[in-house]
Design a binder for these strands. Structure first.
Lengths: 231, 231
DNA sequence: CTCAGTTTGTTCTCCCGTTCACAAACTCCT
DNA sequence: AGGAGTTTGTGAACGGGAGAACAAACTGAG
């Protein structure tokens, strides 16, 4: 059934590759800004901080966009990756929870420049409903459904405290949101078919702490001539 | 050389496991707050949002802290994981770049409650040097070295614009920081032995966008009776 | 004490991702 | 035109993590 047409290259791209495509995209934009028109896989890989073989294999899932003996055309590859990710079009986004983090997210220029448009900022606290953040005014949370339907929002961002997050997620899903970026330190449960990505600031720090501790322990072991059991 | 002593269980824990330990820790804290004293791997796994077999395997790298036929003692396991990660001690942290995101990070309660103490907020902009954020006053960036040495800071957080990030990282490393949490949308290059973890908000959104686009394409293919090539 | 029931810790298998290495393909110089 | 030099795209080997499945170890009832 449904044979793939030539420009329908929906051969499934591995998750690990998908996660790196935005990195390549950013590196290409930087190169383009520097006036560089062509680059080899080695140069691009170095700019993106990955192995060049990995880069080439990743790109090969999208198609053959390079020229052997030459390299990649920066503008062309940039467009192809952007198209594959889907950031050539405009994505309406709602942000729920306008605390410190919500403020930061609303003001983050990286969203707008990558095709994401914040169509609404929602908060349960009535005291905030007069504020205007980043040119968008804060609306009551109860308007979620209407806004999602009106703008065809598929992506929601949760920046509320942990306790409110599951409820917010439930209502987002009911309204029609299919992808959630969750900054609240909670495990969300959502129905099949809904994507959740989690960003947890304190978890990242804890992972770093583990490695610092390990490095410290390792250097103690190196100088273990004088160690004694102080358990 | 250097035989492992009994409580020196530094058999290397897989990275994937290390990344999940903070999740388990949070789940255990939640369970403890609910007054639950004992839990099975099934219950804890569900609270952490992972497979129970994976949870048991992860915990087995730390040691045998459960009781067969019974489960895990919540308080005991919580302490063991916290000790393994290293969050039973206090980690001094510096944050550089007090924009929107820096503000949010400085105020984030999840840091303090997990053993991370913000000892300094640094910014290059002299206009900000009078501010007090989250009880810590903003200092000029030039004081980085002195503060790192004075407090023995091993972990630095970069929340500056992309252009400043590499310079900040260089100076952090020179001052003695060995682990960096980078929020700037840039690939940092650091010497061996220095850990960098990157959190990129717009990349996370782009990954979501890719999946939304795929889901949309898939449902189009399902209803492809009427499709025509509109390339 | 014994036996049925429960739950952990671990082994084994499978799959995904990374990396190496090389053939194919292109450019440029002579 | 031909050959040397580059660089891509990919086949194949390798390593690590995920999940199933089971043996070991504990509880509690009779």
């Amino acid at each position: 059934m449904t044979a793939r047409t030539s420009n329908d290259q929906a051969r499934d791209i591995p998750e690990a590759t998908v996660a790196r495509l935005p990195v390549y995209l950013r590196a290409l934009i930087t190169l383009a800004e520097q006036g560089i028109e062509t680059c080899s896989s080695e140069e691009l890989a170095s700019a993106a901080g990955v192995n060049s073989a990995k880069l080439r294999k990743d790109l090969s899932y999208l198609g053959s966009y390079g020229t052997r003996g030459v390299g990649y055309d920066v503008e062309y590859l940039r467009y192809q990756i952007a198209r594959e990710i889907g950031v050539t079009q405009d994505w309406p986004v709602v942000i729920v929870g306008i605390g410190n983090l919500g403020h930061a997210l609303a003001n983050y220029s990286g969203f707008r420049s990558r095709g994401f448009r914040v169509v609404a900022l929602l908060d349960a606290d009535p005291d905030r409903h007069d504020e205007v953040v980043a040119g968008v005014d804060v609306r009551p949370f109860s308007e979620l459904e209407a806004i999602v339907v009106e703008h065809g929002v598929a992506i929601g961002v949760i920046a509320t405290p942990a306790l409110a997050a599951q409820d917010v997620a439930d209502r987002m899903v009911r309204a029609g949101v299919t992808s959630i970026l969750n900054f609240a330190p909670t495990v969300l449960s959502v129905p099949d078919g809904v994507d959740v990505r989690k960003v947890d600031l304190s978890i990242e720090l804890q992972i770093l702490a583990y490695h610092v501790q390990r490095k410290a322990a390792a250097s103690l072991v190196e100088a273990d001539a004088v160690t004694e059991d102080s358990a």
